[in-house]
């Protein structure tokens, strides 16, 4: 089997329980190198749970996750970061007690290539000029939008192969959301594979090569972003028609 045809990430029959709550029920899908894949679905459908299971924050009760042909069972999040699998968590996952610069350096925690880190830092400041202005400020003093920018910039500092993005539009004004989605497309074009969870189904489907619909913990529909945008059921259930 050639390297190109094998999926970068493959999820098979994934089950996750939170106590008595069955959050994922046999979810399966895969992601090819270089794709943007979106997960959409209602609150509580299991989108964030899927990301957490992939990044090792949660232990699945059944099923298998394969990344570059390697079974991820029992791997801790920090070990996965070393393998290029990076998760930008939902909401304001920045460290408000650290400065913007410290937050960004934490993104590159495992990297030793000082020169390249500096280069990436400049690149991040290039994408989000606001962050440069506030580099010395505590992240907790940033506005919600700026914190979200910081979270994304920080995730990029790890130079991930696969980036898991959870609700990048959360609580952002429409224009900023638009800018952030433009950036997501740009970094994808530069070669990064992205698994995106987003409650704004319009945005999520518009940007995705492939998308999967989660309902009560299972994938109920899959297709290209465009196909799903046109699907009558999707339009009814998630686009508010």
């Amino acid at each position: 089997m050639s390297e190109a045809s094998a999926p970068l990430l493959k999820i098979e029959n994934l089950d996750v329980h939170y106590g008595a709550i069955h959050a994922l029920r046999g979810a399966s899908f895969s992601i090819a190198q270089g794709e943007i894949v979106s997960l959409i679905g209602a609150n509580g459908a299991g989108k964030t749970t899927t990301l957490r299971a992939v990044s090792g924050m949660l232990k699945p009760s059944a099923g298998k996750i394969t990344y570059r042909g390697e079974d991820l069972a029992g791997k801790k999040p920090h070990q996965l970061v070393a393998k290029g699998l990076c998760h930008a968590p939902e909401g304001r996952g920045v460290f408000p007690n650290l400065t913007v610069l410290e937050n960004l350096h934490l993104g590159a925690f495992l990297r030793r290539d000082t020169a390249a880190i500096h280069e990436d830092l400049e690149k991040g400041f290039g994408l989000f000029p606001r962050l440069r202005e506030r580099a010395k400020q505590l992240a907790g003093t940033l506005s919600g939008g700026e914190q979200q920018m910081l979270a994304i910039a920080r995730a990029l500092m790890a130079r991930p192969t696969l980036l898991l993005l959870d609700e990048p539009s959360l609580g952002l004004a429409p224009q900023i959301t638009e800018a952030i989605f433009q950036i997501i497309e740009d970094i994808n074009r530069a070669g990064m594979t992205i698994l995106l969870v987003e409650q704004n189904a319009h945005l999520a489907l518009g940007i995705a090569h492939h998308a999967h619909v989660l309902e009560t913990g299972s994938v109920v529909q899959s297709g290209t972003g465009r196909e799903l945008l046109k699907s009558p059921e999707i339009r009814r259930a998630y686009l508010g028609e």
Binding site: A173, P174, N200, H202, L203, R235, L239, G240, E241
Partner: peptide, 13 residues
């Protein structure tokens, strides 16, 4: 529409 519902929602409704 701008802040929350989105253009598409508006158009479709």
């Amino acid at each position: 529409i701008e802040a929350y519902l989105g253009e598409k929602y508006a158009r479709e409704h």
